[in-house]
Design a protein around this nucleic acid. Structure first.
Lengths: 348, 348
DNA sequence: TCGTAACAATGAAACGATTCAAAAAAGTCG
DNA sequence: CGACTTTTTTGAATCGTTTCATTGTTACGA
């Protein structure tokens, strides 16, 4: 079988017209059971598979949605991608996944590719400033939803997570469990998300007159950065130590935890409570299970697709910016046992 | 702009024939500079973007390669995917990435989708037994390369990594650094890769008359499984302990490391050397940086694409099974400092 | 000036599915 | 049985690109 069978082959093999075969495929009710069965047999015998290129050429649009993420290795994006795929599948579309790897060139290539594919729309976590490209897309009628970044509502729809609220949640939780000398570990402040998380934490601390917040600027957000920050803390006199630490992400928190665990002079959560951000897989299986802030990735992905569909279907594009609130996940590292004794409190 | 501009619009706008526009796009040399310039301006003014559906309808084949992985969240697959993308891009194709999530149903959906898209070929890490589906594909002329699994060479090409060799490497390294009472942590043995790694380790141990290998069957391959295994070890008398542990993957190894670090009676690598498998990101930033076995993911992805192209271009399909050998990555957990003092030996 | 290469530009045909007006077939009822 | 409605089937037109045989144009030497 050199060239795959076309609808025409099926038609002649079944002794019917091409229109009838098409009807069997798309409007089975219009076809009598007898011919339907005959056509079906022809399809099976020839191993016929619809040619999607021809379909979408006729339809003028494909049944796919483009999704460009910053890094497929990042669990945040893989979770979003998976949710987007499910949501798309539910309404008969597929998702084309592109990984820009924080690289504007690759991002641009994917935008071109997806445009040539005539995707129904584009979901994108942009690298830097792409407003120009996106404006161009808008002019060409390609609907776009920004993922994980708040957008100017007059121009685009977007789904994002409220980092300020997340920071507030984390700090508030430390305060609620009796901590008063808080520290924020993270940096650089030039990263929007980190600045927002800090701002939220400050907001919470201001609510308690006797609470303080010390800001510790880390170099990057890696486990190693967290560990060196932890080592600096351990070197301090006990009186100068914070009693609750909020790290801008889980990697930092795990690093801090490592250095405290290694020196064995400070216990978590008795001496210092620790909370991270992102709720990565490793948070649960840390030496002391790490409390964290979970981003609603499933909702992000699902909603992004829904906004896109909504926008594509209405003639008068109305943009919406949906902002999700993250969620507090309490584990042992913030002394859950104190306020709510549970099975999770068993220390190995 | 309601409907996007077609090549016909460009032609009339530039005052030339459609064929000329097509030539500008595909064979610029055939067109005189003057008309080329005129056409180019029309393209820019109308914001013309090629319709890929029409292109591939004419061409009979798309410029995409389908890749179905078991889990996009798994760093192994994301690395393979990235390499495959690069390799594909280098020869003008794009990769459609599908995530089966170890689910045969989703896998089947992607196979259908990719077939309808008339992909140039399929790279797949199959869920369970898909030989039937794949045979069907082969009949329909869709070339397929299996990724990460050795295939019957008479039927398919494949790229895979030699797990036996990896196991040998790991155990040989422990032996070379003076360890004699080795333990293998991992399970269940029903998983092919794990069985192979164990087999390789056994092969190495047999080379040293005075060395022994104890097999510890873990429940799953998670950090928690590793930790509970570690706890069981710590409870043993010192004389009964292994002096070198090879874990079937890095998660297990990190778990074992956690439990040893927590009890602080056994030091790594002085009392027990530890090596994992996969070289995940966290291996570097463990409390004691973890030695590991790295799989050549880039080569896998690149070679998979190359095999596919090779197969698609030759008329007489000749299948090949390419097996890569993994690589030893020495870090502190196996006492690199002993044999080769280096900067990496600095303990914080 | 003419003949002939060499080069440019043309436009109809083809790819494979869907659509839809029209024709054909099957039912219904007096 | 004939007039009518309903259901089923038909097949030409269409989507946007590429291909390629054909026609038109230019350049150059005789």
């Amino acid at each position: 079988m050199n060239r795959s069978a076309s609808i025409k082959d099926v038609a002649s093999h079944a002794g019917v017209a091409v229109g009838t075969v098409s009807n069997v495929l798309n409007y089975p009710d219009r076809v009598s059971p007898r011919t339907k069965e005959r056509v079906q047999r022809a399809i099976d015998e020839l191993g016929f598979v619809r040619n999607d290129a021809a379909r979408q050429l006729r339809a003028g649009q494909s049944r796919t949605i483009g999704l460009i993420v910053l890094d497929v290795g990042n669990p945040f994006f893989t979770a979003v991608a998976r949710a987007a795929e499910d949501a798309a599948a539910r309404q008969g579309s597929a998702v084309l996944l592109g990984d820009s790897g924080h690289n504007a060139g690759r991002e641009s290539n994917y935008i071109d590719l997806f445009q040539e594919q005539r995707v129904q729309g584009l979901l994108i976590s942009p690298v830097g400033d792409v407003t120009e490209r996106l404006d161009q897309l808008r002019e060409r009628g390609v609907h776009t939803v920004l993922v994980g970044r708040l957008a100017d509502e007059s121009k685009y729809s977007s789904v994002s997570v409220d980092d300020d609220a997340g920071g507030y949640l984390a700090a508030r939780h430390l305060l609620d469990t009796g901590r008063r000398r808080l520290a924020f570990v993270g940096g650089p402040a030039s990263i929007r998300q980190i600045a927002d998380r800090l701002q939220g934490a400050e907001r919470a601390v201001k609510e308690e007159p006797d609470a303080t917040l010390e800001v510790l600027d880390s170099e990057g957000q890696t486990v190693l950065a967290g560990r060196s920050m932890g080592n600096r803390l351990v070197d301090r006199g006990r009186a100068e130590l914070p009693d609750g630490i909020f790290c801008a992400n889980d990697l930092l928190a795990l690093g801090v935890m490592q250095s405290l665990a290694m020196t064995h002079q400070l216990r978590i959560p008795e001496d210092i409570a620790l909370i991270g951000y992102d709720d990565i897989d490793f948070a649960v299986s840390a030496v002391v299970p790490l409390s964290s802030i979970r981003q609603p990735t499933e909702e992000l992905g699902r909603t992004a697709v829904e906004l896109l569909v909504e926008e594509a279907e209405s003639d008068h594009p109305k943009h919406r910016a949906v902002i999700f609130t993250p969620e507090l996940v309490v584990r042992q590292s913030t002394g859950a046992a104190r306020s709510a004794p549970s099975a999770a409190a068993e220390v190995p």
